[in-house]
């Protein structure tokens, strides 16, 4: 009996419910970390969304990165620091803010490895050039 009443009501609700009823939400759980300044942001949303980034949790310096119906955005080239991201849909519903910490790898380690790589490469060139001349 309950099913006979509930089923049509549920169907009716499904048809009349607005498409943007789903509150936008990131699929990742924060806080996020990146050691190369890039991160893939993914979310679920029932309508078009606006993705914003800011350096303060209150979004005083918010900058819109993307506006549209995609469910992902690849963010790259970020300088070291702490960032905050949030989604806002067409109805003004906002996702929870997600925190992103960008801490780049050690520059000293990078320079050492670059120097080692250069020495190996020059060594290979030297063996080939000397061998080709002989």
């Amino acid at each position: 009996m309950f099913f006979m009443i509930a089923a049509p009501l549920l169907l009716l609700f499904a048809f009349v419910a607005p498409a943007h009823a789903q509150v936008p939400a990131f699929t990742q759980s924060g806080p996020l970390e990146s050691n190369a300044g890039h991160v893939m942001m993914e979310w679920n949303a029932g309508s078009a969304v606006s993705l914003e980034i800011a350096t303060s949790p209150a979004f005083e310096d918010a900058q819109e990165l993307y506006q549209g119906r995609n469910h992902a955005y690849f963010l790259s080239g970020l300088d070291g620091g702490t960032y905050y991201l949030r989604l806002t849909d067409e109805a003004g519903e906002q996702s929870e803010t997600i925190k992103l910490a960008v801490v780049h790898q050690s520059l000293e380690q990078a320079i050492w490895l670059t120097v080692i790589g250069a020495i190996i490469a020059l060594g290979i060139v030297a063996v080939i050039v000397r061998g080709a001349r002989a």
């Binding site: 190369a36 300044g37 780049h104 520059l107 990078a110 490895l113 790589g117 250069a118 190996i120 490469a121």
Partner: peptide
């Protein structure tokens, strides 16, 4: 840093 390491 990450880009420098990627070169060689």
């Amino acid at each position: 840093p990450a880009a420098l390491m990627a070169i060689f």
